[in-house]
Each structure stands twice: as structure tokens, then as C-alpha cells.
Write a protein that binds this DNA or RNA. Structure first.
Length: 314
DNA sequence: AATGATCACAACCGCCGTGGT
DNA sequence: AACCACGGCGGTTGTGATCAT
């Protein structure tokens, strides 16, 4: 934690220097009272009117991350952990988006949790890995690299190559959504020669650079195999039958549930506009970046049932 | 008990998008 | 079109708490 700046908040040369560092209980009380009485407005006004020597940004952050009454405290439940991991596999470091699926949790909290988790994994893996030769380009060495990223043993963990899922979708539902059909085509043709991470991201409408930066799916080791992996949803139960009575699939929570995702996606309301957009995604493969807003990710996400899960976060 | 290492997390920083002028 | 203020976001830092030696 940061120590409160002793000089902060004092008037220097006529101008009041804004406070930084830890919030005092008095400041918290001021902000809390103001927010309860006036509600959220312009944060600069909040800071001024509440009598705080803080910038609006600081007030906003304090409110969102700490004072908000609907915040939850305490450790993440296993369900929350699993959800975070799964959402991160799809959304990457979009903490705010992930946080929208975890009531009472803030993006900052989730981000901190993730970072500490990854660091742990990195540490565990690097200490248990028998120091592979750095120049070793064997698949084993690459597996170790992937492992160090926390996503090794994907096959062992029940991860399934995305193209297989697409095929499964085609098989089990009698026809993929335009989106998945498109990706199926891409895997079968041009997609083979392009960054699979980009393929994966296009599938959820996120640009490729993100995953590459992240190392989630990107990277040499996976790219060489030209497989895209998605994590299983081991303990997340979804009543697809209720939400999508058309599908004939069964959803076994104990087995690999990637088909859940696929069917969820395929049953999403991709309208004609989106179909057209996905068609245009084809251009993306040859160099254009697809931005998240170019087709409505939010719209997409709200129809993917694994976000509003059927468990209550404690 | 003392010390160093590690963890957890609050808060800051800088960038970006948006809306108003 | 250019500029500015603001809110939102992700990355990063700093430090108290806890653990290991």
C-alpha cells in the first residue's frame, strides 16, 4: 500500500495540492456520504463537492473498487475462479468485461487475482521443469514454455482443438451458425496458414494481437500444431435445453463441455448483419485487424449462457 | 526473535475513446 | 477540424501482511 502523501491536500502557493496515496477513513466517509446523498455524477464535481482533496479519477476508483455497497469481500470461490479462467481464455485481459460476469467483483480485484495466480503457476512450473536447453526447439521444450504460461497440458486438461469443435458442431446440430461455418471454412483453407490465435479470436470477435500479446493461444508451440484450444467448463452447469430446446446435444458437465460453448454460440442471435460482418472477417485474415466493436461483442456475450451462470457467487 | 522472500491488493499512471465546444 | 475534459481501462508499482528460514 502507499503511504499517504504528507504534503498532499495542503495549500501550496494558493493552489491546493491533491492528495494521493491511501484513503483515510475520513475521506472514505466523506465520499460515501456524498455518494449516498447525491449519487454518481461528474467525478470532478464529486471530489469538489464532497470536500475531498482528491482528483475525480481517484474518487471514482475508490468508490468502484472499495466503497461501493454492492461489493463482495473475501476470497474467490472455486466457481468464481473457474469462471475467471474460462472467461479469460475467451476475453483475455479484458478485466472489466470479465467483471461484469462476476457480481460484486471489480475488474481490479480480478486482475490482481489473475496476476497472482499466473505468477504462482509460472513459479511452480519453472522450478519443476528440468531446465530445458533454451535453444531446444523440441515439442517437449515448447510444451514447457506453454506450461510456464499456465496453459500447458491443454489436451491433458481436456482442451479440445477448436477446429474439432467446429466440426462437432456441424455434426451435432446439423449445421453450424454462419459464424462457425465460416471458421470451419477458414480452418480448412486459408486459416491453416494464418495465425491460429487470430482464428480463435475472430471467433469471438476480438483482434488477434491481443491473444498474441497474452500468450494464451498464441505463440510458437501452439501455432505449429495449428490447433486452437479452449478450456473445458468442468463444473459449470448450463441448462441448455431450457435456453435452446432445439439442440439435441447433451451437456455433460463432467466431461469436456466445449460443445456447450459451441451450441451456445451457435444459438446466439447472429442476425443477418452479423453474418455479413463475419463474412467480412475473411478480409481480416489477410491483414486487416478486426476490432471488437466491428461486430457487437456485447451482443454476442449476452447470448452466451456460460456468463450468467446458474451458480450464485457467494 | 530477526530477517528476507513472497503474497495480496490498493492505488497510481498513462493511454484511449467519447462528447462537448 | 482541433482542442479539451472526462471517464474508463489495463498495466504497473509500492507496501503491509504473511510465510519461511
Amino acid at each position: 500500500m502507499r503511504k499517504p502523501d504528507p504534503s498532499a491536500g495542503k495549500s501550496i502557493g494558493g493552489a491546493t495540492k491533491l492528495r494521493k496515496g491511501l484513503w483515510s477513513p475520513e475521506e472514505d466517509e466523506k465520499l460515501m456520504n456524498y455518494m449516498q446523498n447525491n449519487g454518481q455524477g461528474c467525478w470532478t464535481d464529486v471530489a469538489r463537492n464532497a470536500g475531498l482533496q482528491r482528483c475525480g479519477k481517484s474518487c471514482r476508483l475508490r468508490w468502484i473498487n472499495y466503497l461501493r455497497p454492492d461489493l463482495k469481500r473475501g476470497a474467490f470461490s472455486p466457481q468464481e475462479e473457474e469462471l475467471i479462467i474460462h472467461l479469460h481464455s475467451i476475453l483475455g485481459n479484458r478485466w472489466s468485461q470479465i467483471a461484469t460476469s462476476l457480481p460484486g467483483r471489480t475488474d481490479n480485484e480480478i486482475k490482481n487475482f489473475w496476476n497472482s495466480t499466473i505468477k504462482k503457476r509460472l513459479k511452480i512450473v519453472t522450478t519443476s521443469t528440468p531446465s530445458p536447453n533454451s535453444s531446444d526447439s523440441s515439442s517437449e521444450a515448447k510444451d514447457h514454455q506453454a506450461m510456464a504460461r499456465g496453459f500447458m497440458s491443454m489436451k491433458e486438461q481436456g482442451f479440445v482443438p477448436m477446429y474439432m469443435q467446429s466440426m462437432a458442431l456441424n455434426h451435432t446440430t446439423g449445421g453450424a451458425s454462419p459464424m462457425f461455418q465460416h471458421n470451419l471454412n477458414m480452418f480448412g483453407s486459408a486459416g491453416r496458414y494464418l495465425n491460429p490465435a487470430a482464428t480463435s479470436m475472430a471467433q469471438v470477435g476480438v483482434n488477434n494481437s491481443f491473444y498474441a500479446e497474452n500468450g494464451m493461444f498464441g505463440g510458437v508451440e501452439i501455432g505449429l500444431e495449428r490447433d486452437i484450444y479452449v478450456p473445458p467448463l468442468k463444473s459449470i452447469s448450463i441448462n441448455i435445453e431450457e435456453q435452446n430446446p432445439k439442440t439435441e446435444n447433451t451437456y455433460d458437465r463432467s466431461s469436456n463441455n466445449v460443445n456447450n460453448l459451441i451450441n451456445c454460440v451457435s444459438s446466439s442471435n447472429f442476425n443477418n448483419d452479423k453474418t455479413e460482418n463475419m463474412t467480412s472477417v475473411g478480409n481480416f485474415w489477410v491483414g486487416e485487424e478486426l476490432k471488437i466493436g466491428e461486430w457487437d461483442l456485447e451482443d454476442f456475450m449476452k447470448d452466451v449462457p456460460f456468463f450468467p451462470l446458474d451458480f450464485q457467487v457467494q
